[in-house]
Design a protein around this nucleic acid. Structure first.
Lengths: 245, 245
DNA sequence: GAGTGGTCTAGACCACTAC
DNA sequence: TAGTGGTCTAGACCACTCC
């Protein structure tokens, strides 16, 4: 289900290029009414688009004053939303060259924790993805993902997600019409285990952030169970949060 | 600036009690149109309220089907938004008894990192808050916060935030009319340092999550600079993320 | 086809900031 | 007081799910 993209998303795109192209006094954008007129949409739609850009950290809005372009680059958003793309951007914006030195994608019997989360039987075959992300060939994160072979009645093949341009969430949306709406992660600090230490190139026992992550679709079904290992010595884990709406 | 609360927030409250009181077949709420009629507001307002409850993890919405009450308790939200309240809830919902065994709030010369973030001069007096959170008298988190003495032209006194019922963000909103709209955190896994180990009751070197956190107001000024230390052996750090709006 | 949530509009009024 | 963003309305149409 490709699902037509909302007008507000297009408008957000227009605004993005507008921002990149035009110069305004003090980085101040035209008013919402003005933008609505200029872009030929309702003010509501403009507001939705502006909110989108604001939540990306691109804009700064002041009640009764105006909307301003925030000085710095957008930088990454933390957990969630287009996870790998964010990681790639984070790595890039930190001046490193992103890559995936190790990627293993195959079917495997489902381990018990994943089975419990995915509501499957233990030992039943599932997709297993083992991918490592690197900055300048220095490994920084390792992902382990488990997901069912069949989603929404369709067999899925995540082999394509081996490269940097594809992430699991858009893959699920495109190939199985499965939209991830919620994600939940539990973070723990741990000494790195022998198994992971090798791939990540750190001594056993080095502190890392270990995360168990669940992705839910629009029916609240768990679609992906993940275990992630973040080294934070080179790149810290970054979280942004917008309050009030 | 107390600022009148939006109608949608009130409606969200009404819906909350409606949900707690009434019983529906399959936990299914009336349709948006129906709710709008019953509550005497526009459908837009109902939708805003529903979105609020959804983002709290209370509801589950299915396009073309309906809105459902999610089975479990809301559970905590991770970084950000009413941080300490969330921690308290997290601790409570995990079956522990929350407390603040140590709280020190005083004026101190501003250290250099805080000064850079807060745009102040190093050594200039600022408020310093050092608070430890415990679950069943087992310490789990230590917060260090630095903030200016004067915010929005008003002298502030955060001494009240010593107890469990008050958090910094609502304190700033109430006492200085300063609304925190964005927060940013950088997380690192570290071995616990000697200084913090003592208060947290863990051996030096135990892996913990160390966070540097910044709070921004509606003019993008940094208002609070924090350093936080999370032990994750008792309670993991929990992150929820809602995608797509 | 009936009913739901998702999107969009045009217009109104309010709250805030600046002057 | 003028101009901005914040909220709210009533109504319309679309996309989806289920029968």
């Amino acid at each position: 289900m490709p699902r037509k993209s909302p007008l507000s998303a297009e408008v957000a795109g227009d605004l993005r290029t507008l921002i990149a192209t035009e110069e305004w006094e003090d980085g101040r954008l035209p008013s919402e009414t003005e933008l609505a007129k200029r872009l030929g949409v309702s003010r509501t739609t403009v507001r939705e688009a502006l909110w989108l850009l604001w939540s990306e950290g691109l804009l700064n809005r002041q009640w009764g004053v105006g909307t301003f372009v925030r000085g710095q680059k957008p930088e990454g958003v933390g957990m969630g939303q287009d996870f790998r793309a964010v990681l790639r951007d984070l790595i890039t914006s930190a001046g490193y060259d992103p890559s995936i030195p190790n990627a293993l994608i195959e079917q495997r019997p489902c381990p018990s924790e994943a089975a419990a989360a995915l509501n499957l039987d233990e030992g039943q075959p599932v997709w297993f993805l083992d991918r490592t992300f690197a900055a300048d060939s220095n490994p920084v994160v390792r992902f382990w993902d488990w997901m069912p072979l069949v989603i929404n009645g369709r067999r899925v093949d995540p082999t394509a997600t081996k490269d940097l341009e594809h992430d699991l969430i858009s893959f699920l949306s495109e190939s199985a019409g499965c939209r991830i709406l919620r994600m939940e992660a539990h973070l723990r600090a741990e000494g790195i285990s022998e198994e992971v230490a090798e791939t990540l190139g750190r001594p056993v026992g080095t502190p890392i952030i270990s995360a168990v992550q669940l992705c839910y679709d629009d029916r609240d079904r768990t679609v992906v169970y993940s275990q992630n290992f973040y080294t934070t010595d080179v790149l810290p884990m970054r979280l942004l949060r917008n309050l009030h709406r």
